[in-house]
Write a protein that binds this DNA or RNA. Structure first.
Lengths: 174, 174
DNA sequence: GCTTTCATGTAAGTCGTTACATGATTTC
DNA sequence: GAAATCATGTAACGACTTACATGAAAGC
């Protein structure tokens, strides 16, 4: 049930937006935190409207519908942000492979870890590039977006270090 | 498509197992990497059998069916581990909240980050306790399980530090 | 006039969660 | 004999992905 709060939150931050606006904003801002497809988005907008959390505040050209958050929606959003405990994501494709690494021979295991470390390094570089490219403002979206991006970099660096360590553990194993 | 490889991998490691065996093993070993419910498991065993990646190798009391991995299954497993690139998990409930933290007042934002830092600290302690409680063997499952657990601890510590840093960033913001 | 961008909607299929349903065997 | 454990299966619902489908307006 997080997509709905992502949508609700962006509509609140933008002070009104269309499905199309949101789609663009998801791509550039929420893509690494809570991605959403076009089809999911329009579906959710329909449900949120039906439940009275958002409403159509204006209609534009080409069938454009601009949504605004309602009082009910704002309450739900604030409640979700501050009072609902987040669940910790657990599923991790790469770690599952590490767990099962005993099923392939030593050479392939080592090269797997080396390759993953490289991939992570590329991702760090990409993020750093993105950080420079983004025109950081001093609004809330920029401020909190920067915090989130900082987490992205830190966690990738931690992952890189761990891959290196794990590789050495395997190499020095009997 | 990772559940199937988790199942395949555990059957290979155990050298044969029933749905019930796997259910128990998922709970104690894969719970923090790739959790699965009973209903998912039995469904996947059916599909894997139909596709010839596993087969029933023995039948026991109470309708018990023991599965073994086939040659096809083993090839698919090794291919998936060593050659299919893992996808990086992106969705993170807690980070989405941080991104939208401008929607609640400063006080609630700070207390949110404090509470999350505390929760992470509890999780670190829990993991450390689990690590001591587990009877570490010197088989592959233990060896690689330990590597994965080490990642769990490192990433939680990184997250804790970040929560602390982010809190201070907000506090010192104009 | 043609292409791009804006703009919305729906359908099919997979994956995951929760709950229901049933029964055999072992342990106390 | 009752309770716990072993053991499997299915149904309903929600979330996510991919693909299909359509059309209006703006830019060149």
């Amino acid at each position: 049930m997080s997509l709905r709060h992502a949508v609700l939150g962006l509509i609140a931050e933008l002070d009104g937006a269309s499905g199309y606006d949101l789609l663009k904003l998801f791509e550039i801002s929420l893509n690494s935190v809570w991605p959403a497809t076009q089809s999911q988005l329009y579906g959710e907008l329909g449900k949120l409207t039906a439940e009275g959390l958002i409403e159509v505040v204006a209609k534009g050209a080409r069938g454009r519908k601009e949504y605004g958050i309602t009082e009910t929606g704002r309450k739900e959003l604030e409640h979700w942000i501050a009072e609902v405990e987040p669940k910790v994501p657990r599923r991790d494709d790469a770690l599952l492979r590490v767990f099962l690494l005993g099923q392939v021979d030593r050479e392939r295991a080592l090269s797997f870890l080396d390759r993953q470390r490289e991939r992570v390094e590329e991702m760090v570089a990409e993020l750093a590039g993105l950080e420079e490219a983004v025109p950081w403002d001093d609004d809330n979206l920029s401020f909190y977006g920067r915090l989130v991006m900082e987490w992205g970099k830190q966690s990738l660096r931690a992952r890189r270090d761990w891959y290196e360590w794990a590789r050495n553990e395997i190499e020095s194993r009997g």
